[in-house]
Design a protein around this nucleic acid. Structure first.
Lengths: 223, 223
DNA sequence: ACATCACTATATCGGAGCGATATATCGCCA
DNA sequence: TGGCGATATATCGCTCCGATATAGTGATGT
């Protein structure tokens, strides 16, 4: 689900491949470290399917880098980074399209394509602010059900298998404990989300901004 | 590193592809669930490189299934399983070769091919009984260094990045905590291994079987 | 008697991702 | 001037996965 990560970053601002990879590494590094051998084909796929749109930005060397006309740069947004005026060869700057927005929401809610593993969940949760509260809770519940299922399977396999040596056993025990902790963590998050959803559904108390808490149409001030 | 898992299972007894996959799923299911689309090409690679040797075993239907002459079956070994006399179509039974034994040890000790991730370590630890005590400790220490490195990187990334929302932050916090627990677990294992190695190096007290604790040349009674 | 189902068993296909590598350009510094 | 490191895009070979094809087998059902 590299597409999801790419669309999630392009949703905030247009970016070219090299910068995308840096952000993938730095911001989502834990869950989506990616190589160019994956990124460029993924961008080509997204472009072919019409989810993103690329414009060629030639180097300007002098003055301002606003060469990318079509909302190309959103200048002085991440100027804290060292790449302030480093403009070198021509770049392909990708923007997300309407269709891409739709694809992003589909991938994020996970209604299609049940390819769920550890990283897939972590990536979705990173973009949880783009989900409705209800969908957020569904995501957490799905993940929890997965982990519980895995617990059952591991315990069953370990019980029916008496030929485990001490090394395998230590591995199984540690994995079981870790999974239980993950489930507890999910429970905590689910509680917090339910409280938030509950508070949002009665606007008479604490009435301010009960509606704009990550409604899917809310984009722009993504922080 | 599917090869490592396959060789580790074939080290115990010759198996055909379908049974290999079952054991990969049941015994090492947590860390190496594998599909036929991976397994059969991997077996073909191992066969091409001379690490395993395949013999065609045709069905016999009547009497004993000892058709696979060359140490083919090791009859009545896992008869507790339901596939006792289920002999159907012809199978390709794979055995590990001398070269395969060497390859297994190389992959297991990890001197070549530093492709270390979560599952890679878990898989190696599953076969830790085939390592010398010294190599076991090295494996644990390498894994620990990896996790510590990741902790540092994640903290640095999170500190330099002020645009993390609460969802990403909860993810980072949970991952940090989990990693710390993993490190503690590794510390525990390292301590235990060092005590065992220490005890094994002075055979004058508790002298029984200090030498046969998983020496690399000890094969045969692999359980 | 025959159909159907579930299991055993091997194999291949397309696609995704990775690591390595190739090819440029640019700024900097010795 | 020449090398080095960062920026930037792209491709190659490989591994792995999920899906699918093919086929033999025993049990179950009608």
């Amino acid at each position: 689900m590299l597409e999801l990560a790419v669309l999630g970053l392009l949703k905030e601002e247009p970016l070219h491949g090299y910068e995308l990879r840096k952000r993938l590494r730095d911001y989502l590094g834990l869950f989506a470290s990616v190589s160019f051998g994956s990124l460029y084909p993924a961008l080509a796929r997204l472009e072919a399917s019409g989810a993103v749109h690329a414009i060629e930005v030639h180097r300007s060397t002098a003055g301002y880098p606003m060469t990318g006309s079509l909302s190309g740069e959103r200048t002085a947004f991440h100027r804290s980074r060292a790449d302030a005026n480093r403009r070198s060869r021509s770049r392909r700057v990708y923007s997300i399209t309407e269709h891409g927005q739709q694809l992003f929401e589909d991938l994020l809610s996970g209604t299609s394509n049940e390819n769920d593993d550890e990283r897939s969940f972590a990536l979705r949760w990173t973009f949880a602010r783009h989900l409705r509260p209800q969908a957020r809770i569904r995501l957490l519940e799905r993940r929890k059900a997965q982990l519980r299922q895995r617990l059952v399977e591991v315990n069953a396999a370990a019980a029916s298998n008496d030929s485990l040596d001490s090394y395998s056993m230590s591995l199984v025990e540690h994995a079981t404990e870790s999974t239980k902790r993950d489930i507890s963590w999910l429970d905590k998050l689910i509680d917090a989300e339910q409280i938030a959803a509950h508070a949002a559904s009665r606007p008479q108390e604490g009435a301010r901004s009960a509606r704009d808490v990550a409604h899917p149409k809310q984009h722009g001030n993504a922080r």
